[in-house]
Deep mutational scan, measured.
Amino acid sequence: RKEMTAACTPRRRIINLTSVLSLQEEINEQGHEVLREMLHNHSFVGCVNPQWALAQHQTKLYLLNTTKLSEELFYQILIYDFANFGVLRLSEPAPLFDLAMLALDSPESGWTEEDGPKEGLAEYIVEFLKKKAEMLADYFSLEIDEEGNLIGLPLLIDNYVPPLEGLPIFILRLATEVNWDEEKECFESLSKECAMFYSIRKQYISEESTLSGQQSEVPGSIPNSWKWTVEHIVYKALRSHILPPKHFTEDGNILQLANLPDLYKVFERC
Rank of each mutant, 00 (worst) to 15 (best):
P93R: 10
H247F: 06
F197P: 00
E3V: 07
L172W: 10
E119H: 08
L61N: 05
A55N: 01
R36F: 05
K192M: 09
A237H: 08
L150S: 02
V161M: 14
E147M: 07
L150F: 06
E177H: 09
C186E: 03
E134Q: 07
W226C: 03
V45P: 00
E25S: 09
L260F: 11
R11F: 12
I242F: 09
S106G: 15
K246G: 12
S225P: 14
S91T: 15
E113W: 08
W52K: 01
E37A: 10
C47L: 09
V48E: 02
Q51N: 06
N49I: 03
I151C: 13
S43D: 09
Q76R: 02
I125L: 08
W111V: 09
G166C: 03
G213K: 11
P162R: 01
D105V: 10
I27Y: 02
P244D: 01
I151A: 12
C194V: 13
E177C: 06
L174H: 00
A175H: 06
K60P: 01
L142S: 03
K118Q: 12
Q51P: 02
K132V: 03
P219F: 10
V178K: 00
K236F: 05
N65Y: 03
D262N: 08
S19I: 01
W226V: 02
P50C: 07
H232F: 08
I233E: 05
K118W: 03
A83K: 03
S91V: 11
F140D: 01
R89G: 12
L21T: 04
G120T: 14
G110L: 14
E185K: 11
L211S: 13
G110V: 11
L17R: 05
D115G: 09
L167F: 00
E165H: 06
D105K: 12
L136R: 01
L156V: 05
G31C: 09
L167D: 01
A100T: 12
E188H: 12
E193L: 06
N49T: 13
A7G: 09
T176A: 10
G213A: 14
P95T: 07
E250D: 14
N253Q: 15
L17A: 05
E182K: 11
K132D: 00
G152W: 02
A175W: 12
I144V: 07
T9G: 06
V126P: 03
Y124T: 10
P244M: 01
N224Q: 11
I144S: 00
T59Q: 15
L238P: 00
V45Q: 05
P244H: 01
F197H: 03
A122I: 05
S212W: 13
C186S: 03
V45C: 10
E146F: 10
I14F: 08
G120M: 09
L102I: 11
E26W: 04
M101W: 06
L211R: 15
K60W: 15
S191C: 10
L104H: 03
T249N: 10
P168F: 04
Q76G: 00
K132C: 02
M196Y: 12
E182Y: 11
A237K: 13
K2C: 15
L260Q: 10
M196P: 03
V161P: 02
N84Q: 05
Y235M: 05
L243D: 11
N224G: 14
Y160G: 00
N253A: 13
E33V: 08
Q256L: 12
E188K: 10
I151W: 12
I15P: 06
I15A: 06
S91R: 12
R269V: 05
M196C: 14
Q203P: 06
L167V: 05
L167N: 01
I151N: 13
C47G: 00
D145F: 00
D251K: 07
I157V: 11
F97P: 04
F170P: 01
Q51F: 02
Q76N: 00
L17I: 07
V126K: 09
T249Y: 09
Y80L: 10
F128G: 10
E37S: 11
E177D: 10
E71A: 07
E182F: 14
T9A: 11
P219L: 09
Y62L: 13
Y235T: 00
P162M: 02
K236P: 10
S206V: 09
V234N: 00
E108N: 09
K130D: 11
N253E: 15
P10T: 08
I169E: 14
V48T: 04
L61I: 08
A6I: 05
R1A: 15
G220N: 14
V161S: 15
E92S: 11
R36Y: 07
E72M: 06
W226H: 02
L63W: 05
T66D: 01
T9M: 14
F248E: 00
E268Q: 08
E33P: 13
E29D: 13
P10Y: 05
S106I: 15
E119Q: 12
A94E: 15
E188T: 11
N224R: 15
Y75H: 05
E185A: 11
S106A: 10
I254G: 01
T67V: 02
E182L: 10
Y160E: 00
L23D: 00
K265S: 11
K246L: 11
H241R: 08
S22M: 09
F128Y: 09
D105F: 06
D262W: 13
S199P: 01
M4D: 07
N179W: 08
R173A: 05
K246E: 14
L211F: 13
V20S: 02
G120Q: 11
Y264D: 15
T9N: 11
G252M: 06
I125R: 02
S221F: 11
F128C: 11
A83C: 04
